[in-house]
């Protein structure tokens, strides 16, 4: 739901049109402490700023499957999905298991003229373990093994309690933020493409055999992609806030949801109806 309001009277006109455009596009967002659709321009409560362009939006409750986009730059602000948290937890645990397999099974084998060599994932990282290149070994292990596993575990820690309908864990907010910071540095999928390039290069030189770790790693990438489809960080932040992570008292459940069970996400009835109502009242 887009809201953009100049306090100068002459400018106020634009917002009504904008609110309507957004409502038509199904872009609605979730209200936290204030009654849905209310906001406070002095404290910022009930408002959201687009992280890409700073445009202000009123928070409203989204239904599963709806997408909230920024009215100005079209960046996706939230995209909740039914059962997303449970799926992300399951997929993250799968990633951890696959990574354990990928780390300890043989990764690639090569043979030529009676000479053979095989390597594990750690063997790959240890390729740089000569003298002053050692830091790169550490970096490679961090990029392709440590960070993907850490991210998966942090997501499990953040989302598992909420997926089971409980309050989030105590450090859920810092944990989720850490996982967001790690995201660009977690390079498992880049590594597997790198492997493909290396295999093509070696292909003519020697015969190759892909070990179980290679296939585990491929599966890991697919699971990671599936997990990413369900991840909407704005939705997770909102859920963390609504379900009890302390902010400054803004996390009070809105009136429309107070009647529903406190653990429930978005009651099916409230979203669409109240959006229409609030837009109508404002426009």
């Amino acid at each position: 739901m887009g809201m953009s309001q100049f306090r100068q009277p002459a400018r106020a006109a634009a917002s009504a049109a904008m609110a309507r455009t957004c409502a038509a596009a199904g872009a609605v967002y979730v209200g936290a402490m204030l009654i849905e659709g209310q906001y406070d321009l002095t404290t910022g409560a009930g408002l959201l700023a687009c992280p890409r362009c700073d445009a202000l939006h009123i928070e409203e409750e989204l239904l599963s499957g709806e997408v909230a986009r920024c009215v100005r730059c079209n960046t996706v602000l939230a995209r909740p999905r039914e059962g997303a948290f449970t799926r992300i937890v399951a997929l993250s645990l799968t990633q951890v298991v696959l990574m354990i397999a990928a780390t300890f099974f043989p990764f690639l084998q090569i043979s030529r003229m009676g000479f053979g060599n095989d390597t594990s994932l750690f063997g790959v990282a240890l390729a740089f373990s000569h003298g002053w290149m050692i830091p790169l070994t550490v970096a490679v292990i961090v990029f392709i093994v440590a960070l993907p596993v850490m991210r998966a575990l942090l997501l499990v820690y953040t989302l598992m309690p909420m997926a089971m309908g409980r309050r989030p864990a105590r450090y859920a907010a810092p944990a989720f933020r850490a996982s967001e910071i790690m995201r660009p540095w977690s390079m498992a999928e880049i590594f597997i493409i790198g492997t493909a390039v290396a295999l093509v290069k070696v292909g003519g030189l020697a015969s190759l055999h892909m070990g179980p770790a290679f296939w585990a790693f491929c599966a890991l990438i697919l699971v990671g992609l599936a997990s990413r489809i369900y991840t909407s960080s704005a939705t997770i932040w909102d859920a963390l806030e609504d379900q009890g992570v302390r902010t400054d008292g803004r996390e009070v459940v809105p009136a429309s949801r107070a009647e529903a069970t406190s653990a429930g996400r978005v009651p099916a009835a409230s979203g669409g109806a109240s959006v229409g109502a609030s837009v109508g009242a404002r426009g």
Partner: peptide, 17 residues
């Protein structure tokens, strides 16, 4: 458009609050 900056507010680049 009213941006957070113009409204004398500051938006979080990480979570949007």
């Amino acid at each position: 458009l009213l941006t957070a900056h113009r409204a004398n507010l500051v938006g979080c680049r990480s979570c949007g609050r």
